[in-house]
Design a protein around this nucleic acid. Sequence first.
DNA 1: GCAAAAGTGTTACAGTTACACCCATGG
DNA 2: CCATGGGTGTAACTGTAACACTTTTGC
Lengths: 225, 225
Amino acid sequence: MVNDPMSLSHKFLPDCLEIRVVLFTIHQGHLQVLLVSNQENGWQLPGGKILANLSLEKTAADCVRKITGERQTYLEQLYTYGDVSNDKETRLISIIYFALIPDATIPQTIDGFEHKWFPVSTFPVIEPAQAEVIPYALRRLRYKIEYSAVGFELLPAVFTLTDLQHTYEIILGESLDKRNFRRRILEAGVIEPTSARKQGEGRPAQLFRYRPDAVAEVKARRLFP
Amino acid sequence: MVNDPMSLSHKFLPDCLEIRVVLFTIHQGHLQVLLVSNQENGWQLPGGKILANLSLEKTAADCVRKITGERQTYLEQLYTYGDVSNDKETRLISIIYFALIPDATIPQTIDGFEHKWFPVSTFPVIEPAQAEVIPYALRRLRYKIEYSAVGFELLPAVFTLTDLQHTYEIILGESLDKRNFRRRILEAGVIEPTSARKQGEGRPAQLFRYRPDAVAEVKARRLFP
DNA sequence: GCAAAAGTGTTACAGTTACACCCATGG
DNA sequence: CCATGGGTGTAACTGTAACACTTTTGC
């Protein structure tokens, strides 16, 4: 179903256009962003050329799929950069997407390039336009988590309320009240209990799943403080 | 300062790229969007080719300036469309901006093309991607007016509180309480009274101006109901 | 039986909404 | 003096934030 980007039969659009993806996950208790090492140019956002026969969104989705395997991901367009280069003769237009995936191990190298997670607070020096877009993506994520259901995209299919609360706390960078959090998330009706429980230290926790039939944009303006 | 797009010395980027602008104003008590008639293709969003030596934002700003004269405008990037055309061989990528101007008369024809305002609720049939982006721009405007100060961009330099309230009402499509509106807008500290008053029927009204030093994003999450 | 994490309601407070009358001017 | 639009404060209500103890399991 997905076209192979390497197939000879596909035309590329001019070199002045590319897709980049700001890919977030929660890993080791921190929100992290994926960067790719391209020897001569240092670290960069993952991305690639735009194929003439593939929509922008599909191109970005393929880019993420290549990194994560066949996993479904949350994806939205973030911004299009098109700064004029110094020589005033060439320019590169980058259409930047924003993606979220649950914590997962990813291959260390893909197509010979090193891939690595970096905490959003401390990522290495990268191209200025790309460095600028990461905090913007984070702002959008923080903003969005309050009035929509994107938080679930960072969790596995089933999760405990405590897991979910931790996710929110990591993204928002503040701690939340357990009782208020639970009341609101349950009242919003976006998750439902499964029959399973999670065993571990202490009392076993009810496992929940996201209700895919729930409206994408939660009615409440602000789901969490 | 602004480069003449017709100058021969400027290179164009490939034909697959264009800028389009969703330009709103409030005119005759309605929120209206500007469309340009291009004989064979019918009505379209104003826009044009992207010049190699001009940033995307400047290109969009020039496009608006050509329509409105030298007036300063509010401008922000909205979305990039890049749908694949039916023949799977060509495609057009449109970087779409969103602009606001105060009510003003604009030339009926520019460069030989007819320009016309259409109420956002009843605009003619246009290209599907463009038709889709207008309601999106409206949603963004409605959303944004509640937590930022974009409302002022649709008004002249000085205005009465009643003018301002009408602007909000037209955009939001609902009527607002006069006392609550005034209290909030004044508490937000984004406008200040001028020494002038507006004469007319009834009691003269205090004229206000936007405080350009006010923070762009008002602290309050939600400025108006 | 104790350590560890899960689960559960109520009260105080703050922000929002609803609402009606007097004021200044022009004709 | 009347018609027109401008300008002003308070009380009820609704939603939000703060807060501590009991329950279930494994060891």
